[in-house]
């Protein structure tokens, strides 16, 4: 008995995938610039929204933008880049509507556009209410938009479709089930349900960590010192928990012969290591060397320089790597789900 795959070979033009990738590629710098806006306290450099000092966003004199104050440069630049991401997302929805066969991918593209609009709206509220809580929410939801956009790029990718085609062709005529937990066609190990659980936990913990980070970055002058202290400790402990989880994920995925499945594991471990290092750097450039690291050469004479450009970039890199970890975890999860889904349905 040979039943056809429920998931038939998806057909869509490459434009959908290209636009999905472009959305991801543009969203990451957008997060960087947004991080710089917070680092430089430039959130209120333009007091109106969606206009910029009364001008339509796109008609604001470019010379004033480029040659004006740095705060204005990054805030207006953040808005322009945001608008570009919005246009790309619109293009994605249109191209998906016209060429994509999978209904759920069309819905996903619409969700991406909706999230981009909401994200822009949150930025607008932050400005119109001059409210740092909304700045924090805006900063916390950006990684979700980035992760969902990444999901869009994954499900429209050639790998996703090739794997589908391969399985479709590889449906065993004698209805033999695969052995040893391996995909019959490719011989790749099928990640276990435990792996999915671990990555799902990783995603949740990663997002929690990003919210904690956003809270640390958007301190209110009235926040309690002890509350801040607990938040910082939670952030530090969660960082090492994430590193542990990524190590588990790497261990579970490394057996896969498909690099697309195994590679995210090692990338996650490496990114988290870099992120922890950047976290320490961010702390040092903001608050100096902690007491327990005073033995470090130069620590006792370290002078913090407010809004030093290199320091600001390092801090912002810490802000940007977090969403990247979330996005890579999303990639890993989706690919595993895909492999498991196909392995289950290929031999029904």
């Amino acid at each position: 008995m040979n039943t056809e795959l429920k998931d038939t070979v998806p057909r869509s033009s490459t434009i959908v995938h290209r636009l999905a990738v472009l959305t991801v590629v543009l969203t990451w710098p957008l997060i960087w610039v947004g991080g710089l806006v917070t680092t430089y306290d430039a959130g209120m450099a333009v007091p109106d929204w969606p206009n910029t000092y009364g001008y339509n966003l796109f008609l604001y004199p470019y010379k004033t933008w480029l040659l004006g104050p740095f705060d204005l440069f990054i805030e207006h630049g953040h808005r322009l880049l945001g608008a570009l991401v919005g246009f790309t997302a619109i293009g994605l929805v249109i191209s998906a509507a016209m060429t994509e066969e999978r209904r759920w991918v069309k819905i996903l593209s619409a969700i991406i556009l909706l999230l981009v609009i909401i994200q822009g709206g949150l930025g607008g509220i932050r400005v119109m209410l001059s409210d740092r809580v909304f700045a924090m929410i805006h900063g916390s939801t950006a990684p979700i938009v980035f992760a969902i956009a990444t999901a869009g790029a994954v499900v429209t990718s050639r790998w996703w479709k090739q794997l589908s085609v391969a399985n479709h062709v590889a449906v065993a005529p004698d209805n033999q089930a695969p052995h040893n937990h391996e995909n019959a066609n490719s011989g790749m190990a099928i990640p276990s349900a435990g792996t999915i659980t671990v990555i799902s936990v990783l995603l949740i913990v990663c997002f929690t960590q990003l919210v904690l980070g956003a809270k640390i970055r958007h301190l209110q002058p009235t926040d309690s010192p002890s509350w801040f202290l607990y938040t910082v400790w939670a952030h530090v402990i969660t960082a090492f928990l994430i590193w542990l989880l990524t190590a588990v994920v790497w261990r579970q995925l490394r057996g896969s012969s498909d690099f697309s499945v195994s590679r995210p594991g090692i990338i996650l471990v490496a990114l988290t290591a870099v992120q922890i290092l950047l976290g320490i750097v961010s702390w040092v450039v903001n608050y100096g060397w902690p007491s327990f690291l005073q033995w470090f050469p130069g620590a006792s004479g370290h002078l913090i320089e407010s809004k030093n450009y290199v320091d600001a970039l390092l801090v912002t890199a810490h802000v940007a790597i977090g969403p990247l970890i979330l996005a890579v975890s999303t990639v890993a999860l989706l690919r595993i789900l895909r492999v498991r889904y196909l392995s289950r349905h290929s031999f029904q």
Binding site: D41, L219, P221, D223, P225, Y287, G288, P290
Partner: peptide, 29 residues
């Protein structure tokens, strides 16, 4: 380029809103 709210931008996180030295980031210093 004129900056306003300079104290909250540069000082209040550590020195506190009233200059009491117990801003939110004071305990970690």
């Amino acid at each position: 380029g004129t900056q306003q709210g300079l104290y909250r931008e540069h000082c209040a996180v550590c020195h506190g809103l009233s200059g009491s030295g117990n801003g939110p980031a004071s305990m970690v210093q």
